[in-house]
Every structure is written in C-alpha cells, then in structure tokens.
Amino acid sequence: MFGVKAFELIRDLTLTGPEALPLYNSETVRQVLEEMRVLYERNQRDVNNSVNEDSSYLGTVHLRHAALERNKRCLLAYLVNRLQRIRDLRWDFGSVLPGDVAGSLCEQEVQWLQNYNRHLATYMRGLDGLDLTQEHCPPKSLCLEVRCLQDYGLFELEDGEQVLLKKDSIHLLPRSECLMLIRQGVLEHIPH
C-alpha cells in the first residue's frame, strides 16, 4: 500500500516521545524515495497513454499523485521535526552533543547543527556575549547545593577560587557556574 513507509517515519517520531531523538532511519527514507520514484514513473507512463484520448487511466493517476504528495509531506515533516529536536537537544547539552545522541544524526543533520551553532554564536556575539543558553528557569537562589557524580578534578570558579570535585562530595556553588556541569551530568542538584 502507498504511503505506509512514510507513515512509519512519523510513527518513529511519536513512539520515542516528544523529546528523544530516534535513530535516523535512512533505510526507510530510502524506501520512501524509491516508492516515490516508482509512482512517478508509472504516472508518467499513464499520462502519456491518456494523451492518446484514453481517459480511463485518470483515476489511477490522481490516486498516485495523492500518494506522492503524501509521501513528500510525511518525509519533510519527519526531517523538520528531527531538526527541531536536534535544536532542543543543542540548547540542553551545549554545542557538543553527547555521543549516544550524536550517533542518531545523519551526515546532513550534523552539517545543519554545525551551521546552526555558528549562526547562534554570531547572534549571541552581537549581544555583548550574553549567553542565552544558560538559565532556563528563573533563579531562586545564588548558590546551589550539588553532589558530584564523578571525579572531575579541579574546577576554577570565576573569582579564582578552586574547588576539587570528587565523586560523592557535596558542594555549595554559585548557580551560574555549576549549571553547565549539572547539564553535562558531572554534578547533581540536591533539591531541598
């Protein structure tokens, strides 16, 4: 049946939930493109036939064309939604995505992300270096109590003080400086 493969792509996206990025499904994308090629060729043939005043093919041509449009729409929706999620992940993790996520991107998406990072950096440079990717929630306190999840080593604070981040140690650090480490999974916020 037409359009099934394209629908599979969309289902891929919904099955993983709105935040996770499923592995780029290159095989299905290829099959959809192949299906479109076949549909188009058959349509082309039938249109050529119907030029010779045999209009009995027209219904089929319409049906195939609708299938083509649907495939196109589904495929583009799949790609655009993936880009949207990649963008969200980039805002969460910073400009370098963690290995397991980066693995589910295809080559062109990696390229897109690099360009995106460049454009975003250009934009933020125009703002006197204001970093928009920090502080996603309104700040409630200056310092956060954090637990260290791994041996990170020495971490230098903005005022020059050095903190030794050892596994399972607990610190009270200025929020602006530890937010990035929390997102990277080095530290864990201990809520009160």
């Binding site: 479109m36 790609l79 295809c106 250009t122 934009y123």
Partner: peptide, 28 residues
C-alpha cells in the same frame, strides 16, 4: 535577529534539499 532568521531559513532549506528534495521526482 533578522540575520539569524535568514541564516536559519537558508540552513534548514539546504538540509531539506540535500536529504530529500533533490531525490524527489523533478516536478515534486
């Protein structure tokens, strides 16, 4: 913002073009 919007638009267009659109049958 305007520059960013233009860059973003171009970037996304290019990505769609290279992944999918250029493999489509020509009229589509």
């Amino acid at each position: 913002e305007f520059q960013f919007a233009k860059d973003f638009f171009g970037n996304t267009q290019t990505a769609l073009q290279t992944i999918a659109l250029r493999h489509f049958p020509r009229p589509l």
